[in-house]
Amino acid sequence: MPDSPTDPQGGAQQPDAEHAHALQVEVHEITANSRTFARAFGDLRTGLSQRELWLQLGWQDIKQRYRRSVIGPFWITIATGVQAVAMGLLYSVLLEVELRTFLPHVTVGLIIWTMIQGAIIDGAEVFIKNEGLIKFLPSALSVHVYRLAWRLFLLFVHNILIYVIMLAIFRPSLDWSSLLAIPGLVLIMLNVVWVTMFFGIFATRYRDIQPILNSMTLLLFFMTPIVWTTEGLIARGGEAADRARIVEINPLYHYLEIVRAPMLGNSVALYHWGIVIACTVVGWVLTIVALRNYRARVPYWV
């Protein structure tokens, strides 16, 4: 006689209520034991130590996207360049600004915005799209975040070709202060990681977050001085100048400035760096707390 009850067709029945309850208690204990800051930081460190994995996966993502294409990933550069030229020509006419200064402003802004937008939109799906790897590949959760950050950095490097062409055409006056774009880019990459991790965790649990972020990102694009300039609004005076000051509450404006201004040979006000550093610290604190509390639950949510 079998040890466990069977259904009329001879198959094993589902676990009884006591067994199911015991299983829930076990899962709860595992989750509770993993809710420590040491485990959270350990996940980030382990992910960094597995860099060969996410470096290869990130590069493979780009190769796979443009497989059998003649010029491969440089389609990214062409698409961004065409978009920058089209917007630069259009808005320079609409806003009556000089194309020589406005087109580099739009071009560099779009290059940086592509990275920021990718961190928000793709970051919200980073764990959902990697469901199979999360469930069957024993690796840190942060591996998938580093993979996305690496891919966005590679896209940025491809788009730098547009910046080089722009330098050759418009020849902006650059000096040693232009090297400040490097620490600015490092700060943005640090923010890409925490934004991806933070939104990735909560968008996995609450699937409504992802479409909300899509709409919000589109709105932020037009609220951020990419296809318009704060200098142009201030020059008009009156209410336009007041609107230019309101843009200061948009943190993405400051992220753009710490990289775009040096790349165009302009000086960066110190308060831009202060706001970006403050946002980075606050963002990482919130992300570490989220990673501590919900890291173990992500495999059950995907």
Rank of each mutant, 00 (worst) to 15 (best):
D3E: 14
P8R: 04
Q9S: 03
A12H: 06
A17S: 14
A22L: 11
V25C: 09
V27I: 04
H28L: 15
H28C: 05
R35C: 04
R35M: 11
T36R: 08
F37Y: 12
F41Y: 06
G42T: 01
G47A: 02
G47Y: 01
S49F: 11
S49T: 12
L57D: 13
W59R: 14
K63I: 04
R65E: 10
S69P: 04
W75K: 02
I76T: 13
T77V: 10
I78E: 04
G81M: 07
V82H: 07
A86F: 15
G88L: 03
L89E: 03
V93E: 12
E96P: 00
T101N: 13
L103C: 00
H105V: 04
G109P: 08
L110F: 07
I111R: 01
I111L: 15
I112F: 15
Q117P: 00
I120W: 08
D122G: 06
E125F: 06
I128E: 12
N130V: 00
G132E: 10
F136R: 13
F136T: 15
H144V: 11
H144D: 07
R151Q: 15
L154G: 06
F156M: 06
N159F: 10
I162H: 04
V164M: 02
A168H: 04
L174N: 00
W176C: 01
S178T: 14
S178P: 09
G184F: 03
L185H: 03
L185T: 14
V186I: 03
L187Y: 03
L187F: 01
L187R: 01
V192G: 01
V195N: 07
M197N: 06
R205K: 12
R207E: 04
Q210R: 11
N214W: 14
N214E: 08
N214S: 07
L218Q: 15
F222G: 10
I226P: 06
V227H: 08
V227E: 11
T230P: 00
E231S: 13
R236F: 01
G238W: 05
R245N: 13
I246K: 00
L252T: 05
Y253E: 06
Y255Q: 11
V259C: 05
A269V: 01
Y271L: 10
Y271R: 12
H272P: 08
W273Q: 05
A278G: 12
C279A: 14
L286D: 11
T287Y: 09
L291F: 10
A296H: 09
P299K: 02
V302C: 03
